[in-house]
Structure formats: structure tokens, C-alpha cells
Amino acid sequence: MSLGSDSMQDSLKGRSQWRAVLLSLVILVVVWEVLGRYVIHNDLIFAPLSHIFERMYTMALSGELWKHVKASGIAFIFGYTAAIAFGVMTGILLALKPRIGFYVEPWLGALYATPMIALAPIFVVLLGIGLSSKIAIIFIEAFFPVTTNSALGIKSTNRDLIDASLSFGATDAQVVKTVLLPNSLPFIVAGMRIAVGRALAGVVVAEIFGSVAGIGNMIWFSAEAYDMPKLFSGVFLLAGTSVALMSVLARIEKRVAPWRA
């Protein structure tokens, strides 16, 4: 039983990885600050970190930051949650009903590969500037990775597990509940992780094409005004959200499927 030594190695690996992340972060901060203060003297293309965080702080105090975070956050929550709900259902249905999947899956593959940014203006025209077009764009970005991963989770189930279940007299519904769904769970969480990045990209795209507020809107307007501290504030917020959500989902993925580690 090599159980103890395995988990010890894992925690060692985890600790040194954290140290590496921390070190590279410190280096990045120092290099950025030095570049911004002493190398690039043009405020129109770059800003030192201290200026960016100072700006974030004043925007947070004035309530401006909250206005943008709220506008984007609401759209993200609705679009992302709907994409997961419908994506999981669609993916599982397609995998369980191969007759339907046979017709639909090539199109799903094609749409997954299509840059959805190209469709964004269509949604704005159809649904107008505002929350609904934003939600639609975020939804369409996040939907496909969740769908394809959910379907993959069902289809990748080991045939022997299904046979074992059937040999105990399991009904089809029992096979789905006790074998296929648990098997697909880590795949679904992986799909949710991939969808985070795409959904956040969707937020920016949607707000560039049509919005009155939001992080994407803030980035876009500060770019036009060459307001670098404000622009980077938006970028940092998006990056931070993405990293946080993805690492939470990566943890959940490990939690629900320790045998895959």
C-alpha cells in the first residue's frame, strides 16, 4: 500500500508549485513596475502597476467599478449558468440517443470551432443593446464546450462497467443513474472549466458591440481614451475572475474523480 507516500508526494508537489507561482508573480510585479516607471515613459501605451491599483482603488471608492462589475457580473451569471444547464442536458441527451446525436453532432463540432465573435453583431441586431444580447453571446460561447464534454463523459464509459451493472439486472434508467452519470461528472466539470474562459471573452465581446456599462465597456472606452490605468484595471479584473473560477473548478474536478489523478 503506497497510499501514504503518494499523498505526501502530491502535497510536496503542490507546495513547490505554489512557491513557483508566488515567485513568478513577484518577478512579474517588479518587472512591470520598473518598466512602467523607468523604461516606458509614454503614459499612452503603458502604466506602472502602482498607478493601475491606485486607479482601481479610486474607482472602487467612487462606485464606478461596482457599476461595471455588476453589469458584467449579472450577464455572466445568467449566460454561464444557462449554458451549463442546457449544455449538460443537450450533451447527455445526444450521447444517450445516438440516433439524434448522429445528425446533430457534426453541427455541434462545426459551431464549436466557429469563432462566436463573428456572430456577436447578429445578436446585438436581433436582441438590441442590453442585457439580453449580452446573455445570448455569453451563452453561445460557453454552451459548446459544456455540451461536447458532457456527451464525451457518457460515451467514454467503460463497457465493462455497463455490463457489470446489467448483469445484476439493472434497468436502463439504473445504468444511466449509477454508471453513466457518475462517469460523466468529471467531464462535465472539465467542460465548465473550459467554458469560464470562453464566457469571459464573451462578456468583453458583447460589451464592445453593445452596452452602456460593464468591464468590457470600460476596457473599450479607456482604450479609445488611451487611459491605460483604467484599461488594465478591467483586464486584471477579468484575469483574476478567470483564474479564481478555474482553480475552484479544477479542485472540484479532482474532488469528484480522485481516481483520475
Binding site: 467503460n158 465493462d160 462497467l161 455490463d163 457489470a164 446489467l166 448483469s167 445484476f168 439486472g169 439493472a170 449509477t178 454508471v179 457518475p182 462517469n183 461528472l185 469528484v256 474523480a257 481516481w259
Partner: peptide, 19 residues
């Protein structure tokens, strides 16, 4: 006429549910 019942099957590969 159907699996289950009075018989039970032990497979060659370990077909235990990993979760």
C-alpha cells in the same frame, strides 16, 4: 430470460465503479 436473478457474474477486468 434476463440477466440478474439467481446468477451473478465475475468479469475478467475489474469492473468496480471507481467512484
Amino acid at each position: 430470460e434476463r440477466p440478474g436473478g439467481k446468477l451473478s457474474f465475475v468479469f475478467q477486468t475489474d469492473s468496480l465503479l471507481p467512484w
